[in-house]
Design a protein around this nucleic acid. Structure first.
Lengths: 282, 282
DNA sequence: AGACCTTACGGCCGGCGTAACAATA
DNA sequence: TATTGTTACGCCGGCCGTAAGGTCT
C-alpha cells in the first residue's frame, strides 16, 4: 500500500534534487530516503528513477508520479483544513453589525446564552452584512432598519440616539437641541470604528472635516484636551460617559434616532430563539 | 501525519455501517478499526463521529472528511494506474494495420529489431488507424495507400494481390483471369479477419453473399470440403497455401493489387529507422 | 577529499490481534 | 443472548538511524 509519507519524501527529493539535501530538509537520514524511494518503485512496480552510480533523477514515470503526488498532498491538506474549518464553524456564532454598541451588547447576550460557543463579531456596511448572512458568513446580523426578505427572521433589539458632545466653551453648548445643518462646516473629532454612523453623519454634514481617530485611547485623549466638538450616543453613556466638561446636545434630525434589528435566517429561528428575544440596555 | 491506510479504513467503515462489518470485509480485527478511527480524530483534531454507547456514526465533520478521503483514494489509484500504463507504453510498440498479412510480417520484423520491446498489434479501419497514430495509440500503422500528411514518415512495405480461389469443379476455374464483376452474385466463403479487404470486396461484389467465418479452423475446413469459391492472396501462399484442389485465378481490377505503406510520426523516424527499411516477403 | 547513493545491522515505535469488558436491543 | 464498540496487553513487522562501503568529480 502506497502511503502519504512516501509521497511526501518523493516530493522532497524532487524539490531538493538530491536525497542528501532532501534528508537534511526533512530532518531524516539519507538511507531512509533511499529505502523509501526503493519501496515506492516496488509498490508502483515500475522504475521511477534513472540511476547512475552516484546520481539519482526522476525518469518519465517518476515525473508523472510526482505530479500526482503533489495533487494528493494538496488534497490531503485541503481535507484537514476544510474539516477543521467546518468543525470550528459549528462551534462559532458569527455576528455582523452595522454599529459598535449593539454589537458589543449582542455579543454579551450571546456568550451568556450559548456559553459553549465561540463568538466572532465584526462591523461591516449594510450590503456586506446582508450578503454575508445569505452566504452563511454570519448567522446573525444587526441592521439599523427592517430588511424585507421572507427568508429572514427579524426582531427589534433596541434604540440609539445620536448627540453632539460640545465642550462648555462651544458657542452652541447650551442649545436645547441642534440639527446636523446647525453644525455643518465645523471640524469634528470622530472615532473610526462607529460603523454606519460614519457614512450617515458624513452625508448630513458634508462641509465638516472629520478628524478620524483609529485608536480609542487617542480619541478619548483628544476629547478631553481639545475644544473641537464630537459625537456621542445615549447607549454608550453607561460604559463610556462623555467627560464632565462636555454637554450632550440632542440632534433633532430623524436619522439621528435609530432602531436596531437582529436578523437571522428563518432556518436558524429556533436555534437563536432566546437571542432574538434579547434587548439592548439603554 | 494522516496516512492512506487510515482513509481506507474510514471509507470501509462508511461503506459498511459498523466497525465489525468493515473489519470483516477488510480481514482485520475490530479493535484495529476502533483504534484507527480514534487516531484519525486525533490527527484531524476534531470529532468525526457521533458515538452512543454501542453505535458509531459519522457526524458532519466525518462526512466531509469521507468525501475527501474518497477523492484521495481515487487519485491514488489513478496515479498507480497511469504510471504503470506510461511505463508499459514506454516499452511497447503498438502497431495498427489495415490487413492481416502485412501486420504479421511487420510484427516479425519488429520483434527481431527490438527484442527488448513488447509488441501489440491489431487490425482496424483506415480512419481509426490514422486517428490512432495521431493520438499515440499506435506508434506505427500499415495503410494500403500513401497518406498525405507532413507529420508522417512513409515507406513502402510491399505488395499483395488478390485472387479467386476456385475449386476444380467451378465453371470458371480455368480462366486466365477474372474481374470482380465476373463473379458478382456468387456466394463466397470469407474469413472474417481480413481487414480492409472485406469492405473492398463487398463493394466490388454487392450482389454476392459472404459466408463469414470467425474461426480460422472453421474457415480452412470449409475451404477443403466445400465447392464454394473463396479469396486468397499471393503473400499468404507460403504460410497458408490454398489446397491443391483449388485454382488461384488472378483478379484484373486495379483495386485487387495493393501496395502497403508503413507510416509513423516524423518524431519517431530515427527510432524506427530500421523498421521503416524492412520489406514484406512475397 | 567531498558529495552522493547504497547496503548492512540493530533498536524501537506503532499497528495489529487476542482477550476481556461494557452496553444495547 | 447476540451484536457492537472500547480497553488492556503483548507480539512483531517495518521504519529509522548509525556505520561502513563504493563511485564519481
Amino acid at each position: 500500500m502506497i502511503e502519504i509519507y512516501q509521497l511526501e519524501q518523493l516530493i522532497a527529493f524532487a524539490d531538493n534534487g538530491t536525497l542528501s539535501e532532501a534528508a537534511e530538509k526533512m530532518h531524516i537520514s539519507q538511507p531512509t530516503l533511499t529505502r523509501t524511494m526503493k519501496k515506492l518503485e516496488e509498490e508502483f512496480g515500475v522504475p521511477l528513477f534513472s540511476r547512475t552510480k552516484n546520481k539519482m533523477d526522476l525518469n518519465e514515470n517518476g515525473l508523472l508520479a510526482l505530479s500526482h503526488a503533489r495533487k494528493i498532498m494538496e488534497q490531503t491538506s485541503d481535507m484537514l483544513r476544510l474539516v477543521r474549518a467546518l468543525d470550528r464553524a459549528s462551534h462559532t456564532i458569527s455576528i455582523g453589525s452595522c454599529a459598535p454598541e449593539p454589537m458589543v451588547q449582542l455579543v454579551q447576550h450571546c456568550s451568556k446564552l450559548y456559553p459553549e460557543m465561540a463568538i466572532s463579531s465584526e462591523m461591516k456596511d449594510l450590503d456586506y452584512l446582508k450578503q454575508g448572512l445569505d452566504d452563511d458568513i454570519y448567522q446573525c446580523i444587526i441592521l439599523p432598519e427592517k430588511p424585507y426578505d421572507n427568508n429572514y427572521t427579524v426582531e427589534e433589539f433596541g434604540h440609539e440616539n445620536l448627540y453632539f458632545a460640545l465642550p462648555k466653551s462651544h458657542p452652541k453648548t447650551n442649545s436645547q437641541n441642534l440639527s446636523f445643518s446647525d453644525m455643518n462646516g465645523e471640524n469634528m473629532i470622530v472615532f473610526s470604528a462607529i460603523g454606519f454612523w460614519y457614512e450617515m453623519t458624513k452625508n448630513q454634514m458634508p462641509d465638516s472635516r472629520f478628524l478620524m481617530q483609529n485608536e480609542r485611547y487617542d480619541f478619548t485623549e483628544l476629547i478631553n484636551s481639545s475644544i473641537l466638538p464630537s459625537f456621542a450616543t445615549d447607549t454608550t453613556q453607561i460604559s463610556a460617559p462623555a467627560p464632565a466638561d462636555r454637554n450632550l446636545v440632542p440632534i433633532t434630525d430623524e436619522c439621528a434616532h435609530v432602531t436596531y434589528y437582529i436578523v437571522c435566517k428563518k432556518k436558524d429561528r429556533s436555534k437563536f430563539k432566546n437571542l432574538l428575544r434579547s434587548k439592548m440596555n439603554t
